[in-house]
Write a protein that binds this DNA or RNA. Structure first.
Length: 482
DNA sequence: ACGTTCTGTCATCGT
DNA sequence: TCACGATGACAGAAC
């Protein structure tokens, strides 16, 4: 780029200050406003002094451009915004201001966008580092199988031997039971399923489907009044139907009472008896304090209702308790509970599911279980753990959704903020361009060549040197130097 | 009757 | 190898 024309260029001495602050421009010109030729044959402007100020009265004057952002190139007018930038000024011969402005905008905005993007990115990373759940960012697992493979597998599950087995055992749609031990247990427990006509459905949270007389057990359907013992004491965390049922039931310490008789004269003591409350020995560490406290000595119905109402009902509510007429609604046992009941599993489901593996194995060694019982116990343990895992999984999934929704809201707010800043920047830039245009017009109106003719904006451009001097450079020279 | 939601279950994978 | 947790997918029940 040629900063000065080889021919008749005109030098102006301009003490420029950063454009975003006060622009004090001193044009040193001869008193008669006629440029003087310097040693290089350039027109040198003397003495003329005037201050051009870009005031801060605009509505967007508070916008502070980052000091590291590149100088605003003014295209054909070629005036740097700040002397701190010694970058050679662009000297295009473009006279179309709009085009020139577009060019300048494209040079400026990326820097601003980069800055904004960097801040955004930093904020995001900073945020991610402290709050973002790593799980959320985990890549989605690759598909386990293709669609066709899945279809094939499903078909096999529905029509294969397992499916046939299921079809023979249940009335419901068969499921693909491909597990080894599970297949065995399924087969072994099929009699239970068959008897209970359960169709393999989960009845844990469902009203009783079977007739009041449970075919499987051969005893009347378990209700809250006739089921006195709890072998499945669940935690309070999932207090749904399941939790209510869990509260309804209560556990016995099978180790303290290993000889508890099973009412159906099975080979093993069982935890599914129809029992008398007087025989109950609640296990304190398995019961919530409130249930435990009010449990002893209460009539079974009262106890059941109290336990049924459980958590949300305070202690004082007991004083207003009125025993409802009629039988309380029957609380169904889950499929596994009924299976365990049918096979006379001698320990509670709670222990089957929640005991550590070592304790669980030790528990199994204390009893002589049949293969069917063993398989059922292991199935119950597997299903029970998986049920809790599924609940946790769904809880986490919901939490992730909530979290991501929050993240989305924040990102949208940041996007809107950046859009507003961009609009403000463009508005400010337009103001600056407008004022510079006026400034140019005023400067050129003051300039005269040797013959007293004014310089034309179309013919000359202003070029600033690193030391702040500004020269009038013919645009033809600028074009030639490109 | 149909769609949605909830829940249990199974299969599978990774640790 | 086994136990276990996580998770997608499926199915039934409930609404």
């Amino acid at each position: 780029m040629k900063r000065q024309g080889a021919g008749a260029s005109t030098a102006l001495y301009i003490a420029s200050s950063p454009l975003h602050s006060t622009m004090t421009t001193c044009f040193h010109m001869k008193p008669d406003n006629t440029p003087k030729r310097d040693l290089h044959g350039q027109h040198e402007l003397w003495v003329y002094t005037k201050e051009f100020e870009v005031s801060h009265e605009g509505p967007y004057e508070t916008i502070q451009y980052h000091p590291t952002e590149p100088p605003i190139s003014l295209g054909g007018y070629s005036m740097a915004q700040s002397h701190s930038h010694t970058q050679p000024l662009p000297c295009c011969g473009e006279t179309n201001r709009d085009v020139a402005y577009e060019g300048t905008y494209s040079e400026v905005m990326p820097a601003c966008q980069h800055q904004a993007t960097s801040e955004l990115t930093e904020a995001l990373y900073r945020h991610s580092g402290t709050q973002l759940n790593p799980r959320v960012l985990n890549p989605l697992p690759a598909p386990q199988m293709s669609f066709l493979e899945h279809m094939s597998l499903t078909s096999v599950g529905g029509e294969g031997p397992v499916g046939k087995d299921n079809a023979g055992l249940s009335q419901g749609p068969s499921r693909h039971m491909l597990g080894t031990d599970h297949g065995q247990s399924k087969h072994q427990s099929c009699t239970v399923d068959d008897l209970e006509s359960d169709s393999g459905l989960s009845l844990g949270s469902s009203p009783p489907l079977a007739s009041p007389d449970d075919v499987m057990t051969g005893v009347p359907a378990c209700s809250s009044t006739d089921v006195g013992l709890n072998y499945s004491h669940r935690g309070m965390e999932s207090m749904g139907e399941q939790g209510r049922r869990a509260n309804l039931l209560y556990s016995l310490d099978y180790q303290q009472h290993p000889t508890q008789s099973y009412p159906y004269s099975g080979p093993h003591p069982s935890y599914f008896p129809v029992t008398q409350p007087s025989q109950m020995q609640p296990q304190p560490h398995f019961l919530p304090p409130m249930s435990m406290k009010h449990q002893q000595g209460l009539p079974s119905a009262l106890n059941d209702l109290h336990l049924n109402s459980s958590v949300s009902i305070g202690r004082s509510s007991q004083a207003f308790y009125v025993k409802p007429r009629g039988n309380p609604p029957p609380v169904p046992l889950s499929r596994d509970e009924r299976r365990a009941h049918a096979l006379k599993i001698p320990f509670p489901l709670e222990k089957i599911i929640n005991l550590p593996v070592d304790d669980f194995n030790e528990l199994l060694t204390k009893y002589t279980l049949t293969d069917a019982q063993l398989a059922l116990v292991r199935d119950i343990r597997r299903r029970g753990k998986n049920k809790v895992a599924a609940q946790n999984c769904r809880k986490r999934k919901l939490e992730n959704i909530v979290y991501l929704e929050g993240e989305l809201g924040q990102l949208q707010a940041q996007r809107d903020h950046l859009a507003r800043e961009r609009m403000e920047f463009q508005h400010n830039l337009a103001i600056v361009k407008h004022r510079l245009t006026d400034l140019y017009a005023e400067v050129f109106s003051q300039l005269r060549d040797e013959d007293g003719h004014p310089y034309s904006v179309e013919d000359y451009s202003l070029q600033q040197t690193p030391d702040g001097n500004v020269y009038l450079v013919p645009r033809t020279d600028l074009l030639d130097g490109e």
